[in-house]
Amino acid sequence: MSGPDEFDDFVARRKPLFPRPPDGLEPPADLDRMVLRQAREAIRSETSEPAYHGTRWGMPVAIAATVLVAATIVLHVGMMQRDPVPKVTVQNITQRTEQAPAGAVTTAAPALAAPETSATPLPQTTPAWRRDTRSWLAQIERLRAEGKTAEADAEMAEYRKANRAYAGSPDR
């Protein structure tokens, strides 16, 4: 075995302990090509990643947009349905037609075009606020606000009688 100094020189790469013959070992060209191809493809796949990222976050955004649009439509339709639409029946139309020559308060427009108009013909002595549902209901509210509960209830009963279509409505 070599001496300690000799070995230390060898470890420090100052002096070889024995001549090492050149072996000429080199990786074959095919191997080089495979490694380099892999390295190149790794970079290529990385550079094409942004497009992939785009689709990755694009999908949730598309879903969110769809949900938003759908919710908006549902809300809009729901609010439209809340507005009372008078029930159009053959009886109502017949009554209206009969009342019209007698100078009824109803407008000349067809019933469908004036949903706010009362479906039942009213006598000539009818107070002004009873001529359309909005002012009638406003009058009822006013009476309630003034503490005239009995009068308000009576008006409401009249209102319901006149507007049978709404009598059974759950939100009235």
Binding site: L25, E26, P27
Partner: peptide, 17 residues
């Protein structure tokens, strides 16, 4: 990629041996 080629050229022989 050029950087990798240089790096590879430097170390391929030693690693292979």
């Amino acid at each position: 990629m050029r950087a990798f080629e240089q790096l590879y050229a430097r170390h391929r022989g030693a690693l292979y041996r």
